[in-house]
């Protein structure tokens, strides 16, 4: 009986300490939610770009596994599409954005969408999607053209788009396993000079088109979508 009483008293004391401690902690932590998680912010992109950035297609691209720099560059280029100098000024002002490359990007509605996000939100979204694993979309490919495309890729593209276009390292776009319609539109934009690119890439694209004709773009696309 005596022993049980002691346990009871100990139990009460301990419980009281626990309650006081936890209540104090909760007063500190529990009252204000300062910002939505990265996951929640990224959720607004998923309506078009798919759950965790894996699109069900046929045209909105997969954004899972793109680098944070790539996504920030795209969003700022969209947001300040009519005034890219402003986007550049923002990038210049922040040390952590030194590798973000602002380039003109044609858009249908992404410029309007990008107006909705602050720089902090863009960074959070970029961080979230850069941590998602790359998923390659299974698509029917013309295997003969894919073979030609592979050779073209090795010769003209592989230096930057490493590992057969599978890698997004060094802030390049995802090619292997990306949606064909998106690759086609994007290559067309580069080719028409609607979308800005590095001098190096422009040179390579011109060289390829000169030697292999414009239809060689489709060979490349068939190679990229042939990969799992």
């Amino acid at each position: 009986m005596h022993k049980q009483n002691k346990i009871y008293v100990y139990f009460r004391k301990t419980l009281l300490i626990h309650i006081i401690g936890v209540t104090l902690l909760s007063l500190l932590m529990n009252t204000v939610r300062a910002e939505p998680s990265k996951q929640i912010l990224a959720y607004s992109c998923a309506a078009c770009h798919g759950i965790n950035g894996v699109s069900r297609g046929p045209a909105t691209p997969n954004i899972a596994g793109l680098t944070a720099n790539y996504i920030i560059a795209a969003m700022l280029s969209y947001k300040y599409a009519t005034d890219l100098d402003r986007a550049q000024a923002i990038v210049d002002k922040h040390d952590d954005l030194e590798d973000v490359v602002i380039q003109a990007r044609p858009a249908t509605m992404m410029s309007q969408v990008a107006q909705g996000y602050s720089l902090a939100q863009i960074k959070a979204i970029a961080d979230f999607y850069s941590r998602q694993p790359i998923v390659r979309i299974v698509q029917d490919a013309d295997t003969d053209r894919a073979k030609i495309g592979k050779k073209l890729h090795k010769k003209y593209c592989d230096k930057c788009h490493e590992d057969d276009g599978r890698s997004t390292e060094d802030d390049v776009g995802l090619l292997a396993g990306q949606w064909a319609a998106f690759l086609r539109d994007t290559l067309q934009d580069f080719n028409n000079e609607d979308r800005e690119m590095s001098k190096k890439m422009a040179k390579k694209m011109k060289a390829m088109a000169k030697k292999h004709g414009n239809e060689s773009m489709e060979d490349l696309i068939q190679f990229y979508i042939s990969q799992q």
Binding site: N30, R33, L41, A47, V113, G116, S118, A120, Q121
Partner: peptide, 16 residues
């Protein structure tokens, strides 16, 4: 449900 008050950031409303 968590008894929290809100004072911070929200995602935008996007109507497409």
């Amino acid at each position: 449900l968590s008894g929290k008050s809100f004072n911070g950031e929200l995602p935008p409303i996007l109507d497409v």
